[in-house]
């Protein structure tokens, strides 16, 4: 059987070998990266950082009306 030497295959093996032969510090930082990305993208984004305007208003027209309302209201958006 002819070995598969396509570019895609070479790129795949480049990354595969790179990760397989990674040094100890490399493995440690990858564990940290994965934990960090899980916390940021899964926990923080889903539970704490929903887009305020997209969550509370249905379309851009309503969102812009809300922001215009905020901009033209003479008081600050909080009580001093």
């Amino acid at each position: 059987m002819k070995p598969n030497n396509s570019l895609l295959n070479r790129v795949f093996h480049f990354y595969y070998d790179g990760f397989r032969n990674m040094s100890g510090w490399g493995r440690r930082v990858w564990v940290i990266i994965l934990i960090k990305l899980f916390i940021i993208i899964v926990i923080l984004k889903i539970f704490f950082f929903q887009d305020f305007l997209y969550k509370n208003w249905h379309n851009d027209k309503e969102r812009s009306e809300h922001v215009l309302d905020q901009l033209t209201n003479s008081s600050d958006n909080y009580d001093r």
Partner: peptide
């Protein structure tokens, strides 16, 4: 080490724009 630990820490700032600073973002 520095690159890997620091990567994606800036994404949180973008989350904050949409959540905490929505009038500004818009």
């Amino acid at each position: 080490i520095n690159f890997a630990i620091g990567i994606a820490t800036g994404i949180i700032l973008e989350f904050e724009f949409g959540t905490n600073w929505s009038n500004y973002s818009w």
